[in-house]
Amino acid sequence: MDQDIIKQRVNDWYHTYSNDIYKYVFFMIGEHDQAKDILQDTFLRAYHNFESFQGEKVKNWLFRIARNLTIDYIRKKKTIACLIDSISSSKVTNKTPEQTIVLNETERELYDALRKIKRSYREVIVLRKIKEFSVSESCHILGWNENKVKVNLHRGMKALRKQLVKEGYRHETI
């Protein structure tokens, strides 16, 4: 296919999905600038791998690319953080991202708790609850089967609640 046509197609997709993808990445990593970089890389990768696009739902394909890039970033960051910790024993400061300023108190608590639970729980909650993808769409993006998506969502929600209690935001129900 002509490169200009592919470029035009990617531009159209960008106009439609960029904000959604940005939100997904932001909820996953909590860093505005980094989320922007991943967003950019997602569309560059989509352009370069256009031939591997099998005519599936574009949104799912783009989210899958974004998810892979996000995981790569989280892994890299984890390794670097481990190295820094082992060298200087200094903790990486966890600044509140500018974006979260717009959230109200309950939402902020939820956001903070979400950031502290296991990555696999976080990603299924972000997709299913925040981005409101269906179970089958989530399966497609995550590469999981339906059962795994449901189980992880259930466990994730429990973990989220537990985290909120731990932080003192909620009281445990008897």
Partner: peptide, 26 residues
């Protein structure tokens, strides 16, 4: 938490200007 999740999704957004800058770079 469905209500909060929906609300959070609506509040976190990429500014128009930033969106255009990224597209330009792409």
């Amino acid at each position: 938490y469905d209500r909060e999740f929906k609300s959070m999704n609506n509040k976190i957004n990429l500014a128009q200007k930033e969106q255009e800058d990224i597209l330009y770079q792409i």
